[in-house]
């Protein structure tokens, strides 16, 4: 692995909280790792697990899913349902051999620009350590 490896990370951000959080980080001129490619989704509950697989299939090295804190979901229960799905799905991906360090979930509210920076940096660091995803 050469030292210049920069991971590609796909970040699914929910429209109502995390995307606005990312926006806040931007308008506040906060700096964070440029490795994420943001995909805006209406709600984390909208994410089909097959989308997370597609991320790896199409050559990304990691994935971040971020949504509203519990009880803050714009659609009331989308993030609760998503949480259960991830709970099971991440264990399953781990079981088939995708390192757990490649899949991350977080709650970032619209007011948490600073937390968004923290999350992105943390995720980027972890995926960088794991190197390129060579699986598929």
């Amino acid at each position: 692995m050469n030292n210049n490896f920069e991971p590609k990370i796909i970040a699914f951000l929910c429209n109502w909280c995390s995307y606005a959080g990312a926006d806040l980080a931007g308008t506040s001129r906060l700096k964070y790792a440029p490795n994420i490619r943001v995909i805006k989704v209406p709600c984390t509950g909208r994410l089909d697990p097959v989308m997370l697989l597609k991320v790896f299939e199409t050559g990304a090295d990691g994935v971040l899913v971020s949504g509203c804190h519990p009880n803050d979901c714009h659609y009331r229960s989308g993030n609760f349902l998503a949480r259960r799905r991830w709970m099971v799905f991440k264990d399953m991906l781990e079981f088939v051999g995708i390192e757990p360090g490649r899949i991350h979930f977080s709650w970032v509210s619209a007011a948490e620009g600073a937390k968004f920076v923290e999350v992105v940096n943390k995720v980027t660091d972890e995926v960088r350590k794991l190197g390129t995803f060579k699986g598929l």
């Binding site: 519990p70 609760f80 259960r84 991830w86 709970m87 099971v88 991440k90 979930f105 943390k122």
Partner: peptide, 29 residues
């Protein structure tokens, strides 16, 4: 995770079609 086994009680919702506010979330940043 949910203490659920399918095929015994048709009157409860399937575990991934429902949620509990207190579900564990130690894996979420």
């Amino acid at each position: 995770n949910f203490g659920y086994e399918v095929g015994f009680n048709p009157n409860v919702p399937p575990p991934l079609a429902t949620y509990h506010p207190e579900d564990k979330e130690n894996f979420i940043i």
